[in-house]
Design a protein around this nucleic acid. Sequence first.
DNA 1: ATCTTTCCCACCTAGGTGTGAACC
DNA 2: ATGGTTCACACCTAGGTGGGAAAG
Lengths: 225, 225
Amino acid sequence: MDLMQQQHQRQQQQQHHRELYYKANQLQCKIKLQNDDLWANFHKLETEMIITKSGRRMFPTLRVQLENLDPNEHYCVYVEMATVTKSRFKYSASGGWAPAGAEEAQSPHKMYVHPISPALGSTWMSQIISFGRLKLTNCTTPPVGHMVLSSMHKYEPRIIIAKTSDPMYVRWSPSTTVAFPQTQFIAVTAYQNDRITKMKIDNNPFAKGFRENGQSKCKRKRIRT
Amino acid sequence: MDLMQQQHQRQQQQQHHRELYYKANQLQCKIKLQNDDLWANFHKLETEMIITKSGRRMFPTLRVQLENLDPNEHYCVYVEMATVTKSRFKYSASGGWAPAGAEEAQSPHKMYVHPISPALGSTWMSQIISFGRLKLTNCTTPPVGHMVLSSMHKYEPRIIIAKTSDPMYVRWSPSTTVAFPQTQFIAVTAYQNDRITKMKIDNNPFAKGFRENGQSKCKRKRIRT
DNA sequence: ATCTTTCCCACCTAGGTGTGAACC
DNA sequence: ATGGTTCACACCTAGGTGGGAAAG
């Protein structure tokens, strides 16, 4: 009896301690995702993102608005890519995407620190924070600003706000993590779903040359020399 | 006698105090200018920089390497444009540039904070610091990143390293200022010296279309509609 | 008249798209 | 055979040049 009571008390203390620790590391801030409609439209079809050796931007772009930060404190903001389903994926025109095979070993360096880090809370809140320079790659020795992903795997971008003025100590600082399920995507080296391709072409200004609505002057041709 | 001695002593104390203060505000760091040869070639002819309403980059670009900073301290780096000769200038094809008339009232906001500010000494020292995004303008309500100058006036860029993690307190932080005389220039709305124009065209990649050495496909034409 | 500023333009640099063949 | 990856390419966006006419 005494022994069990002691054990229970100790467990409660540990639980209490964990809660305090959790709260101490939890910032009271809010993150709002921009382009929400566009993300939702892609998400309905299962978003795909191209990865290349030289690095490819995400489209839609990850853009957020931050609120409730302390204007006078320094923060660093970064993105991580987490694998949400522990398996490799496979696409078939008939059945769409489905898990197939075991998850491959993941590169440990999946962290993109926003280039204006560190900055004051007031600075972060005064503008839309864009991760437009973030690039996805399958290169094993990537330059800074590139995130290494595995093709045919599903990822979820997670945005982390860390209260520190030194990007080196971002992992050991009080922080808040937010993930938006509608930004999940499957990394691919070539698009699988034609409807995803079409939606990319229709919305990304850089792909305007592939639109069919009369804007394009001529059809695409390939002349191999 | 006594009175003069007292006065002298007080003066010495003040002088001593000023020296201490000066040293306390002086960082022990070094700044090296890049592109020194190019700057020197322009300087020999009296460098001109175009200013426009929408803002014009400098060419050559201000680029420096920093040394002897404390790797673990935060710094902000910024540029100021100081008028070196208190007069307006005038150009004549025969006599070149000469002072002419009184200096016009200068805009007080001549400060461009390098976009990676604030950053650690280690970060600043690990790369060449470029002010390539800095733009010169004669617009009276400039956007951020633009420096307001007066046409036909002579300026000297001054690079200031301030030991602070908050860009707001850059003016009241210990700092070092370095000016490179070979980067002095006269602000103009159109080039005056043809040899300056030629040297800009020959060295700025964006002006390649105006080169005459067989690289350009066709001559420049103006068709006014 | 003369000098300075403004504007549009052709011509560049720099680099972000998906294509489709070739490759593995 | 099959399926994923790579590459050169045409076509874009975005924006930095000085020229030269026109305007102030």
